[in-house]
């Protein structure tokens, strides 16, 4: 479930990036790289789990699914927070700089 939610987030971020390309003022590409990186890593995790559990991997308990979904959404939120912090630090539009150094 976590993998699925992250893949959806990566796909949505990629569509948003593509819509605005080549302009990347808001650093959407960072978000894409982060979500795709995590998705690929969880895919590896999922393959390892599938090798271990077999077909039971595709029949998770409802409680596990809810927990994984909760984790998936938390991961998306965490990714968004990291992206937001990066955006504010880089400050591509110079908004924060203008606010701080306004006389």
């Amino acid at each position: 479930m976590t993998l699925l939610i992250t893949v959806f987030a990566a796909a949505i971020a990629t569509v948003v990036w593509y819509k605005n390309a080549p302009d990347d003022t808001y650093r959407i590409s960072t978000l894409c790289f982060m979500y795709w990186g995590a998705s690929l890593m969880w895919m590896c995790d999922a393959v390892a789990e599938y090798i271990e559990l077999g077909s039971a991997f595709f029949e998770p308990a409802v409680e596990d699914m809810i927990n994984d979904a909760f984790l998936g959404f938390s991961v998306i939120a965490f990714g968004l927070v990291i992206w937001l912090i990066t955006l504010l630090i880089k400050d591509p539009k110079g908004v924060i700089k203008a606010k701080l150094f306004r006389r």
């Binding site: 992250t6 590409s29 960072t30 790289f33 982060m34 979500y35 795709w36 990186g37 995590a38 998705s39 690929l40 890593m41 969880w42 991961v75 965490f78 990714g79 990291i82």
Partner: peptide, 10 residues
């Protein structure tokens, strides 16, 4: 970015 972003989320 792929590696560090993924590692952070993991």
């Amino acid at each position: 970015k792929l590696l560090s972003g993924g590692s952070l989320l993991l």
